[in-house]
Amino acid sequence: MDANRFDLGGGEPIIILDDVAKSYWRETLEIPVLQGIDLEIPRGSYIALMGPSGSGKTTLLNLIAGIDRPTGGSLEVCGHHLNGLDDDELAAWRNLHVGFIFQNYNLVPVLNAFENVELPLLLTGAGRGERRDRVEEALALVNLTDRMFNYPRQLSGGQEQRVAIARAIVTNPDLLVADEPTGALDAKNAEEVLGLMERLNAELGKTIVMVTHDPKAAHHARHQIHLEKGVLDRTVEVNR
């Protein structure tokens, strides 16, 4: 193992980043965002990616989630080398292995809670009955069974985010990625959502990688990884 690699220890790695780099081009000007990221995250971890604005934490999250591609290095996530997958394979991989939780929930406004949660299942080939069971199970887990047929506009922000979490877990992915999941919530709802994510990690064994600015939110994670100007700065184990 590389001596510079950030290894959080604790067993079989679910995420392995090897000298990962990401740059953007503005006309002829190369703007490096991430450089030389070496990182191993074990299955079942709960990671908070932290750092100042522009440090590259969202870019790193996007690379791990397979919605962006690195300009250097290699990524292995959930047992797959992402560099070798084409766009369609990557899409299928995300459907199977990754659940997304966004800051603004990003529910489809014309679909009710049930249908929003059902959306990723349409790609799995599951039958109607199986889809119904899994959606009901996911909504029960986030305690929204009674709001199943409400549309996003009929839900509070906290409820919308819980629907989004149900949508993220309904395909039973190994990995949950969350980008500022409490950024749009008040303190009470934020605490509720963070508690729910903690349960998903502790009880269901989901690996969670969360980007956050909020130290309180980060405190719910087991490890904090700090980035500074596109490089890994330090990891901190959270004592709870």
């Binding site: 989630a65 919605i67 766009d87 369609d88 899409a91 299928a92 991989w93 995300r94 459907n95 199977l96 997304f100 966004f102 990003n106 489809v108 959306l119 990723p120 790609l123 949508r167």
Partner: peptide, 16 residues
């Protein structure tokens, strides 16, 4: 635009 990006993130291929 965002909704389309979210669907693609969830695993909808560009073709679909």
């Amino acid at each position: 635009t965002t909704e389309i990006a979210v669907c693609r993130a969830m695993g909808f291929s560009s073709t679909r």
